[in-house]
Design a protein around this nucleic acid. Structure first.
Lengths: 155, 155
DNA sequence: TATAATATGGTCAAGAAAAGTCAAAGTCAG
DNA sequence: CTGACTTTGACTTTTCTTGACCATATTATA
């Protein structure tokens, strides 16, 4: 029951996504906006509210001549421990906690040894050289960003 | 899906580069421009945005009669990976540059596809949510941290 | 040989063609 | 009537295209 433009555009994009069989759509923002008689930024709204990584989509775009917005569907395994972790993470995490977490993910075979080392090295406080309330927030975001990719198994 | 001339020319050059087997292509600027119905300086634009050293290419050229533009693909030296990269990038790295580098590292088999995706996702400006002089510095540090582990893992 | 003409490629800045951001205003269910 | 969601549009940023002018190498000519 789509009763507003956002829902209609959402449905439209999902239908195209289905039909194209390839889990991918590429659109031009202004063109789509014209097609649905709305302002271009409405497209951004639809995308940012309905095609987020948490919904299982990855969006790339390019500006300038020949620009585009590309939406890809990725399969998120809802059973993933990783996702659980991801959600329970909170917006701050200290070094010790992140190390323990990575250790565990490695032990349980969610990430490779090298990935674990890489992440641990990147999340050290010497690397994240900012002061403390911010540092832990940054670490949380980075970890979240890394885990998103782990949780989204594609190709 | 190339939507603009620059992309088309980029693809063309990369294909020639592939096919010629020798990691080298030599063109004449005005000739190529004519072939793609664009102004000559467009070729310079394509080269300066897509065939930089960060992307793994070296470009030489000569003016005057019998002039040419030669593009060579170069590989990173296993011994000096981190140093090479560090020297060429400095202590600040913007998102576009880091993406070029990661793509190259993947292409040259230094990192897996998943590692590349993970790092790209972590280094996005939305994730590194701090203001700009600092953000690029942080990105450089993080990339350096990742590279240390890559370099250490010399199989 | 010195000089002029010709043949290339290089630089840069203006403008166009996208997409992104953000906050104010509108809508609607509870 | 309040809070969450939606719509709009002014302004920003990024990327691409074009063209006028510049620099350099080779070739023809005095």
């Amino acid at each position: 029951m789509p009763n507003n433009i956002s829902d209609i555009i959402e449905q439209y994009l999902k239908r195209i996504l289905e039909e194209s069989g390839l889990d991918m759509v590429e659109i031009q923002r202004s063109e789509l906006a014209e097609q649905f008689h709305c302002v271009p930024s409405q497209i951004n709204y639809v995308i940012s509210t309905r095609f987020t990584i948490d919904h299982g989509y990855i969006v790339e775009s390019k500006r300038g001549g020949g620009g585009y917005i590309r939406i890809r569907r990725v399969k998120l395994d809802r059973e993933h421990l990783v996702l659980e972790v991801l959600r329970s993470l909170g917006d701050q995490i200290n070094q010790a906690t992140s190390e323990a977490l990575l250790e565990r993910l490695y032990r349980e075979n969610w990430i490779t040894r090298r990935e674990a080392q890489m992440l641990q090295n990147m999340l050290r406080r010497e690397v994240l050289a900012v002061d403390l309330p911010l540092r832990d927030q940054l670490r949380a975001k980075l970890l979240y960003g890394a885990l998103q990719v782990i949780a989204a198994h594609r190709d």
